[in-house]
């Protein structure tokens, strides 16, 4: 099964028959087996699947953090597959934003400096209006001068979200962004992500194993054994949970 969108919407990122193999010979493990997927511009897509299904690998390959064994990956009009280190660096700098489970802020920099870091690395100035919008949306205006150690987990993750948003990348990849947060902070962050898609047309691809988190997305893609096995549009926590339950029964996995 493949997950494609209609020709009316333009893809912000796509994977075309992507294979990812680790090891060689008998020890060879296939993390991805011919995944083809498109992620529409201006939508919030969640990738779900049980542990070891290949969901994180798919995201890493899409983001240019990992190379694919076969197939192609592209972001916007850039073909990621085959880029060298400097090409990948430029891609990450200009077209991609990241949100990690571990927040990954620089402890030496203030919240504001962390938010502006990708832009200053690229040598660009932030759009002041957009910057203000982002800061107000994440609600961090009174925390800008604080260092990460002085912020709560939820606040840190909001700083990380602002950092990803402020450069207006083609696509933001979020890897279990609520994994380290309590449910209230998690809900805040997810709401914030959904709003940035709805109100500002940001494209977000999120990997998660939490059905509640996935329910915030516009569309959910299910992975099992390195293949896309199912898809839900306009999901709710219940429909996601149902699908997941079905996936846990191997006989029902579509081949």
């Amino acid at each position: 099964m493949t997950a494609t969108v209609g020709p009316q919407a333009q893809a912000a990122a796509q994977a075309n028959d992507v294979w990812k193999l680790y090891g060689s010979g008998e020890a060879q493990v296939a993390a991805l087996r011919g995944v083809t997927a498109e992620f529409e511009r201006g939508r919030f897509t969640a990738i779900m699947g049980p542990s070891g299904s290949g969901k994180s690998t798919l995201m890493h390959c899409l983001a240019g953090l990992d190379s694919v064994t076969r197939g192609t990956v592209s972001i916007g009009e850039t073909t990621v597959t085959g880029l060298g280190d400097s090409g990948l660096t430029k891609l990450r700098r200009d077209k991609v934003g990241f949100i990690f489970q571990q927040f990954n802020l620089l402890p030496t920099l203030t919240a504001q400096e962390n938010i502006l870091l990708p832009l200053s690395i690229a040598g660009r100035k932030p759009d002041p209006a957009w910057y203000d919008t982002v800061i107000d949306t994440v609600g961090l205006r009174d925390r800008l001068k604080h260092r990460p150690a002085q912020l709560s987990g939820g606040q840190q993750q909001r700083v990380a979200c602002a950092r990803a948003l402020v450069a207006r990348p083609e696509v933001i990849f979020a890897d279990e962004p609520t994994g380290n947060l309590d449910s209230r902070s998690g809900a805040e962050v997810l709401n914030f992500l959904r709003n940035s898609v709805r109100e500002h047309g940001q494209t977000i691809v999120m990997v998660t194993h939490d059905p509640t988190a996935a329910a915030y997305a516009d569309r959910v893609i299910f992975l099992a054994d390195g293949q896309i096995v199912s898809e839900l549009v306009e999901p709710t926590a219940d429909t996601v949970l149902d699908t997941m339950k079905k996936l846990d029964t191997p006989t029902e996995v579509a081949r």
């Binding site: 430029k90 990450r92 934003g97 990241f98 990690f100 990954n104 402890p107 870091l117 990708p118 690395i121």
Partner: peptide, 16 residues
Amino acid sequence: TRELGLLRAIGLRRAQ
């Protein structure tokens, strides 16, 4: 290591 990875992930070049 993790910090360096992050910096590289958000676009710091090798030379930088």
